[in-house]
C-alpha cells in the first residue's frame, strides 16, 4: 500500500537566485486525481518536472517507489517526420514491446486510429496533443502527470481526455496542473493551491 503512495516532503527548488519552490509537501494515493492550481510563475511546471525526474530538486524529498511515470507536457513532444504509428511504436518499444492489441486500443481511445499513417507534423495541434496522451499511456504508468492538458485540445479532445482520466482512475495516481479548473468539473478531484512556492490551505475538492 505505502509503496504506491507519492509523498513530497519540504521540496525546494532554486533557479539561479530565485526560489521557485520554497516548501512543498503533499501526498497522493492511487485512485486520486490531484489538481494543482496557482497563478502564473507559481512554480507549477517546475514541480511537475521535478516529479517526472526531468529537473533536479534543490532540497527536500520526493518519495516514489511505484511504477513508471507518464508525462503529458504542454507541448506534444513528438517527432514531426515520423508517422503517428511510428511515434507511438517507438516509445512503446522503449517501454518494452507492446502488444498489437494494446496499440490499436490506445489509438482508438484517443481517436487517431484512422490517422495512424499520417506524419505527426501534418496533424492539428489538438490531434498532436491526443497522440501525446496516447504516448503517456503507452508507458502503462502508475503515476500520470498532466501539464495544462486541456489547453490545446478541441471539444472532442477534451471529451477524450476526460474519458482517459476516468479510465485510468483505479490503478494510477493522476496529478494535473492547470489554471482552468472548470475543465476538471465532475471528475472528482482534490485541489491543491500553489502560491509563491508553497502549498496554501483552502484548496477545495469536488468528490
Amino acid at each position: 500500500m505505502a509503496k504506491d503512495v507519492l509523498t513530497v516532503k519540504h521540496l525546494k527548488k532554486e533557479l539561479g537566485h530565485k526560489q521557485v519552490l520554497k516548501d512543498v509537501s503533499f501526498q497522493a494515493e492511487p485512485g486520486e486525481l490531484v489538481v494543482i492550481t496557482g497563478p502564473n510563475g507559481a512554480g507549477k511546471t517546475t514541480l511537475l518536472r521535478i516529479l517526472a525526474g526531468l529537473t533536479p530538486k534543490s532540497g527536500g524529498e520526493v518519495l516514489w517507489k511505484g511504477g513508471r511515470i507518464g508525462y503529458v507536457a504542454h507541448q506534444p513532444m513528438l517527432y514531426p517526420n515520423l508517422s503517428v504509428q511510428e511515434n507511438l511504436a517507438f516509445f512503446g518499444e522503449m517501454y518494452g514491446a507492446p502488444s498489437q492489441g494494446r496499440f490499436q486500443e490506445l489509438l482508438e481511445l484517443v481517436g487517431l486510429w484512422f490517422y495512424r499513417l499520417e506524419k505527426a507534423a501534418n496533424l492539428s495541434r489538438g490531434m498532436q496533443q491526443r497522440l501525446a496522451i496516447a504516448r503517456a499511456l503507452m508507458a502503462e504508468p502508475a503515476l500520470l502527470l498532466y501539464d495544462e492538458p486541456f489547453t490545446s485540445l478541441d471539444a472532442g479532445g477534451r471529451e477524450v481526455l476526460r474519458e482517459v482520466i476516468t479510465a485510468c482512475r483505479e490503478v494510477t495516481i493522476q496529478l494535473a496542473i492547470t489554471h482552468e479548473l472548470q475543465n476538471f468539473a465532475g471528475l472528482g478531484y482534490r485541489e491543491l493551491r500553489l502560491e509563491d512556492g508553497r502549498i496554501v490551505e483552502g484548496g477545495g475538492s469536488s468528490a
Partner: peptide, 16 residues
C-alpha cells in the same frame, strides 16, 4: 538538435 527542435527531448529522457 533533432530532439530539441521537436521538443521531444523530455519525452525521450523519460522513456530512456
Amino acid at each position: 538538435a533533432k530532439e530539441v527542435d521537436s521538443g521531444a527531448l523530455d519525452a525521450l529522457l523519460l522513456a530512456a
